[in-house]
Design a protein around this nucleic acid. Structure first.
Length: 549
RNA sequence: GUGCCCGUAGCUCAAUCGGAUAGAGCAACAGCCUUCUAAGCUGUAGGUUACUGGUUCGAUUCCAGUCGGGCACACCA
């Protein structure tokens, strides 16, 4: 990649000048007149060296021994920026790389041989996935692919709680609906799950067993039936989005394995836990911002959620991953800190655990805001949204903003098949290219754009052509930097620029021209390369690349 | 009240380690289809980056405070 080359180039110059070592940054200037890459290293050195930034920049430039096939020009500008112009030849080379590497262009081996575990969705099987789950569901899908593109071996994991209050509540709710089939006056638990799916589960049980379970005291059968039914629904929704988890791990396994008790024993042994009011408390460190100690085992003998979560993270660390990622909504913003604190106090290195907290989503239909709640009848299932606006739009809308900002999701807009809808802007560029390629194959049989034979790269010289190639060549770096910060949405911003540059190229340059075969072939190859970059980007984001629209 | 996240154009959002004239889309206005998809392109207009201080050659970015919004503050998960 170009930046690696620039690093060693400038570092060599700094060494020759006996300048102190600096961390180098190469940014793309906002204005194209300022070159393709810029460095502010002279400004950052100015204070230490007590020289003018422009003089320092000049000294550095004088010592640069650059390859003219890669760099065409270096100049000083403004307060002391070193502006570097990349040669057209370099972009042509990259362009040919795209055509050769195809769906591998942009893949890197930055993290080859490393194992990553991404745990997400992880909704308890007490009901279908609803709108509130959407953001992390889609974010995780993109992130998993993104990590694979930079070399990670990614395990996709789903962790659920099949042991706590919520599952018990599910059993009670199903039982109540079952009993109501027999006696409509049977009371429904106050905080039970009210969705219609509970009635359906009850009906299935009733159809099979009739009245025989009337006076059940053990509700395990009802809980299990609910769990199975809900999981089927959840998996169905995930399938529609093309999401498949490699591992489903559950909480009760941690009990049967004795992991929970090991953690308790370890805390007690280290003097970090104490009994009070019949409960077991974990000492929290005030210096780290924790206000008070937390209960890890209730007076009833059951652990609070923290304990199994700690055991689960220890389990993941012990499985030997180099990177462990959790994705949560901001409503879990504080709790994960407690969990990691506990894990750390037991002597485990939590540095490899990366927790991604995404902010909440406000759903709107036009100006109406849409409410969602698991407990309410009006919960908006994620499945329904996929049916309504399609998997691509769902995926795109949930991923298009940084996790750290609130997301406004306008369902009306996502539904709209028009230029207002940002997902179509990208997909349309791809479909448009496919149209041109189809036209070439059908109506210009002599234009063999798939072989090297008749390709003359010197024909590529229009501003729109080279400009497009410059953008395409940035793809590998965009993938790396999105992955480094775990932010797939950055790639969408980039792909928008690709689409924009393609549309501009299309508008100003006729691709197929019967009079000019060689130029047509060169331009068809540009189309092929742009199509490839869009495809590769779409694959990471998790949307399809339509051939027609 | 305390902690975390956020506040940028009418709306939704960008802005890379603190860099050059704060950028896109939508909405508004004015143009462009006898030529490969007009779900597109070109142009105009739109800003005291919530506010006040501080650090710096340089602040949307870092620090402090104020105001406003979201989330969390259980022996629920």
């Amino acid at each position: 990649m170009i930046k690696t080359y620039l690093h060693s180039l400038v570092n060599d110059a700094l060494k020759k000048l006996d300048f102190p070592e600096k961390e180098l940054f190469f940014d793309a200037p906002k204005d194209e007149k300022h070159g393709d890459v810029t460095s502010n290293v002279a400004m950052t050195l100015a204070k230490e060296l007590k020289q003018k930034p422009r003089d320092i920049a000049q000294s550095i430039i004088d010592k640069l021994e650059f390859n003219p096939d890669i760099i065409s020009k270096v100049e000083i500008a403004g307060a002391g920026f070193i502006n570097i112009f990349i040669s057209d030849k370099y972009y042509i080379t990259q362009f040919l790389n795209i055509l050769t590497l195809k769906n591998k262009y942009g893949k890197s081996d930055d993290f080859i041989g490393k194992k990553a575990n991404l745990e997400w969705v992880s909704a308890n099987p007490t009901g279908p996935l609803h709108l509130g789950h959407g953001r992390q569901v889609c974010l995780g899908k993109s992130l998993a692919t993104l990590l694979e593109w930079v070399g990670y071996d990614v395990t996709r994991e789903y962790y659920y709680n099949d042991a706590g209050n919520q599952m018990e509540n599910l059993g009670k709710s199903v039982y109540a609906r079952y009993m109501q089939i027999i006696d409509p006056n049977f009371p429904f638990p106050e905080d039970g799950y009210v969705g219609d799916y509970i009635k359906q589960i009850a009906q299935i049980i009733y159809d099979e067993r009739k009245n025989s379970l009337k006076n059940s005291t053990d509700l395990t059968l009802f809980t299990k039936a609910g769990e199975n039914y809900n999981f089927k629904t959840i998996r169905g929704t995930l399938n529609k989005l093309g999401i498949h988890h490699d591992i489903f791990s559950n909480e009760s396994q941690l009990y049967t394995d004795g992991k929970i008790n090991e953690v308790i024993d370890d805390f007690v042994k280290r003097g970090l836990a104490y009994e009070k009011d019949g409960a077991l408390w974990l000492k929290m460190d005030e210096k780290l911002g924790f206000e008070k100690d937390k209960v890890i085992r209730k007076s009833t003998g059951e652990p609070t959620y923290r304990l199994p979560d700690m055991a689960y993270h220890i389990n993941k660390i012990e499985r030997g991953y180099d990177l462990i990622i959790d994705i949560f909504g901001s409503d879990h913003g504080d709790t994960y800190k407690e969990v990691l604190y506990g894990v750390k106090m037991l002597g485990f290195n939590t540095d490899k655990i990366k927790v991604i907290i995404h902010q909440m989503v406000t759903f709107k239909e036009g100006t109406e805001s849409v409410k969602m709640s698991k407990r309410s009848d009006k919960a908006y299932p994620l499945d329904g949204l996929i049916e309504e606006i399609g998997a691509d739009a769902v995926q795109f809308f949930f991923v298009m903003r940084g996790a750290n900002t609130h997301l406004d999701f306008d369902i009306e807009l996502a539904k709209e098949h028009s230029d207002k809808n940002p997902v179509y802007y990208l997909q349309y560029a791809h479909a448009r290219i496919c149209g041109i390629l189809r036209n070439a194959e059908e109506n210009f049989p002599g234009f063999d754009f798939k072989s090297e034979a008749d390709f003359n790269s010197s024909l590529i010289k229009a501003e729109e052509e080279l400009g497009l190639l410059k953008i395409l060549a940035k793809f590998p770096e965009e993938v790396s930097s999105s992955a480094a910060s775990y932010e797939p949405h950055k790639l969408i911003l980039y792909l928008n620029v690709v689409a924009e540059r393609f549309h501009r190229f299309y508008h100003n340059n006729r691709v197929l021209d019967a009079e000019n075969r060689d130029l047509s072939i060169a331009r068809l190859k540009i189309c092929l390369a742009a199509k490839q970059i869009l495809q590769n980007g779409f694959q990471i984001i998790g949307i399809t690349a339509p051939e027609r629209m």
